[in-house]
């Protein structure tokens, strides 16, 4: 029960945070994703498509029956991250991540929105600097990401 309240509290905190940002999405996520299909994806990055208008993070997950699935998760524009010093080697293949979001309305597609992308300990992969595009290389050190991927 305590865990449940804690989870509720966390959800409320995250929701408040997301809602406090006036523009949390660039296009109509509401039509793209299904509010009745929440997902939590724990797995390894197999590919990141650094493309516009949105990045797509491909994650391989192992289902309870041992079979594997590769999900595509929609993030934001890569340009902001590139200006902060991230590049295609920043999150190498095999980096363990947890992504929460909602599946595409078309359930034949293994696609979801990446509401939050974190390392297993809950730290966010994509940290924003407070300046306008000021590089924050420490947050994107390949070495650091590799360590987290172990």
């Amino acid at each position: 029960m305590q865990t449940r309240s804690w989870t509720c509290f966390l959800f409320a905190a995250v929701a408040m945070c997301v809602m406090s940002w006036p523009l949390a999405a660039h296009h109509a996520f509401g039509s793209e994703f299904d509010a009745n299909r929440p997902v939590i994806l724990k797995g390894k990055i197999v590919k990141i498509e650094w493309i516009n208008p949105h990045s797509w993070i491909h994650v391989e997950i192992v289902k309870p029956d041992g079979t594997k699935e590769i999900w595509m998760c929609e993030g934001g524009s890569p340009n902001t991250l590139l200006r902060r010093g991230a590049n295609k080697n920043t999150f190498p293949e095999g980096t363990e991540v947890i992504i929460d979001g909602y599946q595409a309305r078309d359930h034949t597609e293994l696609r979801a929105n990446a509401r939050n992308v974190t390392f297993p300990d809950g730290r966010k992969l994509f940290l924003g600097s407070t300046g306008t595009g000021a590089p924050n290389p420490e947050d994107f050190s390949t070495e650091k990401a590799r360590k987290e991927g172990k």
Binding site: W21, L23, F29, S31, R83, N113, K124, L125, F126, G128
Partner: peptide, 15 residues
């Protein structure tokens, strides 16, 4: 808004 009840993506992507 456009995050239409499913959330957008977090602040790390924004500038």
């Amino acid at each position: 808004g456009p995050a239409g009840n499913v959330g957008g993506y977090n602040t790390g992507w924004l500038d």
